[in-house]
């Protein structure tokens, strides 16, 4: 009786463990089976490299290059803004910050990670848009802030993982505190910091609501930092509500393209983290 119970529960535990595999399989299947036929129908080249997105024209055109570029530009901008501040803040938290201050700042950074993206969006709408307009620049600034906690948290643990004797060795050679940190600890934590950047890229490219609220969302080739831009994520959310037929499938295909981007980013993150100290 007891042995049977053990066996049954073992099977139950095993089955629950398979749930994540099932989830990934279902997600892949449903996205691909709905998205790929649309890409086939539109033509991979027209879809991925087409510069015009006008689903309601006759004949409609479904080119998502503007959105692909939009996502890439906005993400790049977020990295330019968020990474330097984030990595330096991580250095501060790991090696500079007095203990008392740490108890205030660390929960602050955690809170920054916990703020919902719509709240960021509302903040951006009223605090950034009046200065920078509904533009790529606004989206970059807002996303730069949103990836901060990710970059800080992962860089901080990477810097902390460097053995203490690296730092002591540098001090022994006569380097000051900051020089030891920046020229010895930080280079040694390089792959961990890079992993933080990659994860930040993933966050930025997948972010949806906050971007929609500040980016303007015009579906045209991005022209300037001060003009509106539409990302892949925004394209899906904005049009899915009323899309039908091929238009709807093209939006799901947009999701497939985003999914592929994310998979590439995830794989590079795992590789980098495997190399981290």
């Amino acid at each position: 009786m007891q042995a049977l119970k053990e066996k049954i529960m073992r099977a139950v535990f095993f089955l629950t463990a398979l749930s994540s595999i099932l989830a990934v399989a279902l997600i892949c299947y449903f996205l691909l089976s709905n998205g790929l036929p649309a890409i086939g129908e539109i033509g991979p080249q027209e879809f991925l490299l087409g510069e015009e997105w006008s689903p309601s024209d006759t004949p409609p055109s479904f080119g998502i290059l503007p959105m692909i570029l939009g996502s890439l530009y906005v993400t790049a901008g977020a990295i330019v803004i968020g990474v330097p501040i984030g990595v330096l803040s991580a250095v501060f938290l790991a090696r500079v910050c007095p203990k008392k201050l740490y108890k205030v700042i660390k929960p602050g950074v955690d809170l920054l990670a916990g703020i919902p993206s719509v709240v960021y969006g509302f903040f951006g709408m009223a605090a950034i848009v009046p200065l920078a307009g509904n533009s790529m620049l606004s989206a970059c600034i807002l996303l730069g802030v949103m990836i901060l906690p990710t970059v800080v948290a992962i860089s901080e643990s990477a810097i902390r993982a460097v053995p203490e004797h690296y730092y002591e060795g540098a001090l022994a050679l006569g380097a000051g505190h900051y020089r030891s940190v920046f020229r010895v600890l930080l280079p040694a934590a390089k792959s961990g910091v890079l992993a933080a950047v990659v994860l930040g890229v993933g966050r930025a490219i997948g972010e949806t609501m906050a971007v929609i609220m500040v980016a303007g969302n015009q579906a045209r080739m991005p022209v300037s930092l001060f003009k509106g831009v539409r990302t892949l994520t925004a394209n899906i959310v904005i049009e899915m509500g009323y899309a039908t037929g091929l238009h709807r499938d093209a939006l799901i295909a947009t999701g497939v393209v985003l999914f592929v981007f994310i998979l590439i980013i995830n794989i590079s993150f795992s590789v980098l983290r495997g190399k981290a100290l």
Partner: peptide
């Protein structure tokens, strides 16, 4: 495999979950 899929799941953006939920 379980660990790999877990990592994948944790990186998927919420809009992709939304699309999947809508389809499935």
């Amino acid at each position: 495999l379980i660990r790999m899929t877990m990592e994948t799941l944790s990186g998927i953006p919420s809009i992709v979950y939304g699309l999947f939920g809508m389809l499935f």
